[in-house]
Design a protein around this nucleic acid. Structure first.
Length: 396
RNA sequence: CGGAGCAUGGCUCAGUUUGGUAGAGCGCCUGGUUCGGGACCAGGAGGCCGUGGGUUCAAAUCCCGCUGCUCCGACCA
């Protein structure tokens, strides 16, 4: 850890207003570059990857196929649906050296519709659900609250294509269930509400909200929510405008019926903090934490402590190999108090503290962040103890 | 875009009203004493005070412009 870039701050940065934003900055997860534009530091990136890994696993499980579309999109495609004009100032527009117009993609209905139009002909090739995890650009009127409303942000967006309304309904329901699984696996308290489809358009949509005080929207039951997911039944809005047709069993040409489904990746991570924190810092749900376990020698310069810490570290590392979990060794020279404060701020769920008191009896301490509970455990039983902790959370 | 506020070492801020060679705490570096929940002592580095103009013998401070950032409203994952 001594070489890991984690610039923790002792005071709240003045640029942040809500607690999750303050904590992201204080705990060294992100660094602002401009309004609504952030660099993800090593810890921030790890959390983002934890989110995208869960999303990817569940999307794949649901039979969706991952693709990757460009960020830079030609104006021509947007003119076909009229959204080049409609989207207004929120669209980041650029020109190439030949004065040809492009935009930085805020969403990808046009592009995916063109793709499917040009590569799918028959009802036999449907249904199809394609997704990507990618950076989106929207020149928000007012970026705010850190990763909550950025101008550049990571999103999972997927689009489904069907031969009938009934088949769209089936897939929509499947995506609904998939989203439930995703937010459940992340350990988040969420709810679903009917929503306005806005500029995306289409018939019917629902929003997934993580419940939190600082949410941007008032939910029907009085609580506030942070919108982290949105699923839409698009119908034939895009397929008709762009001529995305298929041949049915009777050799008749019909427009494909579409759905689309988004998840705000970084926003979900921040919402998790907004929902899970205390006065000392972040309380990550175990699957989202950048490291599930931190091993903290009371004095890293004491040879015996450090060797035991290293041993436990490599054991943990080995036993985590297939889980996607990670362990951190705090080899910094600082005092124990400062190191533990940092770990609490960062939000590591489990601390293994190696100190002289315990070592006298060949024991270490396992302390859980959330409850503050401390358990004295024999060194050779650390692994078994940890598996008890993991059983609490759903691996999916 | 309308309304409000802010901009001074890496971070949090004082100094601006009443112009006179730039301060504190935290962090950082050195040495020492410490060492189980953000230690203490001593020494040290680090700032054209957001930017451009103006007033003045003299501007962080007064005046005008610009830029950036934050908050409140309308749009959205």
């Amino acid at each position: 850890m001594s070489q890991l870039l984690v610039p923790t701050l002792r005071e709240d940065p003045s640029e942040a207003e809500i607690v999750s934003h303050k904590l992201l900055l204080r705990a060294g997860y992100i660094k602002k570059v401009a309004a609504g534009i952030y660099t993800y530091l090593p810890l921030g990136l790890k959390v983002l990857q934890n989110v995208t890994n869960i999303v990817r696993e569940e999307m794949n499980r649901a039979g969706a196929q991952e693709i990757f579309m460009p960020v830079l999109l030609p104006a021509e495609l947007w003119r076909q649906t009229g959204r080049w004009e409609q989207y207004g100032k929120e669209l980041f527009r650029v020109k190439d050296r030949h004065e040809r117009e492009f935009c930085l993609g805020p969403t990808h209905e046009e592009i995916i519709t063109e793709l499917v139009r040009d590569s799918v002909r028959s009802y036999k090739e449907l249904p199809l659900n394609l997704y990507q995890i990618q950076t989106k650009f929207r020149d928000e009127i007012r970026p705010r609250f850190g990763l909550m409303r950025g101008r550049e942000f990571m999103m999972k967006d997927s689009y489904s294509f069907h031969a009938s309304e009934e088949d769209l309904d089936r897939e929509y329901k499947k995506m609904y269930e998939t989203y439930c699984r995703i937010f459940q696996r992340m350990g988040l308290e969420y709810c679903v509400t009917k929503a306005d489809s806005g500029l995306i358009g289409g018939g019917f949509s629902e929003e997934f909200h993580v419940i939190a005080d600082a949410g941007e929207e008032e939910l029907p039951n009085g609580k506030r929510g942070i919108e982290v997911g949105h699923i839409f039944k698009l119908g034939t809005k895009y397929s008709e405008k762009m001529g995305c047709m298929y041949m049915d069993e009777n050799n008749k040409e019909k427009p494909m019926v579409m759905g689309c489904y988004g998840i705000g990746v970084a926003r979900t991570a921040q919402a998790a903090i907004e929902q899970n924190h205390d006065k000392d810092g972040i309380l990550w749900p175990i699957p989202l934490a950048p490291y599930q376990v931190a091993i903290v020698p009371v004095n890293a310069e004491e040879k015996e402590q450090f060797e035991v810490a290293e041993k436990i570290y490599s054991d943990c590392k080995a036993s985590f190999a297939t889980t996607g979990f990670d362990v951190l060794l705090d080899d910094r020279a600082g005092r124990i108090g400062a190191k533990l404060k940092d770990m609490d701020l960062i939000g590591i769920p489990i601390k293994i503290i190696v100190g002289p008191k315990g070592l006298k009896e060949n024991k270490i301490e396992i302390k859980t962040r959330k409850s503050g509970e401390v358990k004295l455990v024999a060194i050779d039983r650390v692994r078994e103890e940890l598996t008890n902790v993991w059983n609490i959370c759903d691996f999916g």
